[in-house]
Amino acid sequence: MTNLLALDDVRVRFREHEVLHGVGLVMGRERIGIVGESGAGKSMLGRAVIRLLPPGATLSGIVAFDGVTLDDRNIGARRGRRIALIPQDPRFSLNPAMTVGDQIAEVLRVHRRLAAGDARRETLRLLNSVRMRDPELVSKRYPHQLSGGIGQRAMIAMMLAPDPDLLIADEPTSALDASVAGGILALLDAEVTRRQMGIILISHDLDLVASFCDRVLVMKDGEIVEKLRASQLANAQHPYTRQLLAARLRLEK
């Protein structure tokens, strides 16, 4: 069996300043959580996988997806199609000048080569599948007319449209209220299971990652400092992981 994703010595550099220092990771169709504080390089790692780095960044090392080493030429056929990224705040990532329905239909026409009428019907079906109460109405809305939770559901519908194998979710609920975040996570949980996808969940929230994922990678200053099973998080050895665990505010005493 080939691995779904394998990273070897992945580095990201801005001129002489290195922000990701040789990261390695091998994963199948499983749930990997990446935790760490701001500046740890979590998002940079997610973006390095799909080669979508900020201007001025250089990438080195090997990223292999489904047995193929990714490069600037072959990433286009996979990014969005087989590897999808769900960002933190959909209102900044959706096209502000296009209705939600048109954006999802465009994804379907490009990645699944559907005709316009089929794309429209499939769009409504997808919006319905992310438990949107009124798919027809939402499809006619522009992103700024949506609440955070509805926008994130629309984003998830759009990212799942090409039926990807790997989902990279970068703090998918950090911009949302707790009562809304729960529904989004339950939706992601159900879809990842149903579609047998791999997922990389990037989050600053240890408790969330521990309950959502199978394995957890702890990052600090551009390096993975500890890898462990999610169920073993409480027994973490690395001082930084212990520090993160200690800094959590618990509702319970």
């Binding site: 339950a186 949980d189 309950s211 509702l251």
Partner: peptide
């Protein structure tokens, strides 16, 4: 009560 339940965090279904 709803806010309290949501604040206790995500519980995986499976």
């Amino acid at each position: 009560r709803e806010l309290f339940a949501a604040s206790r965090g995500f519980r995986r279904a499976g």
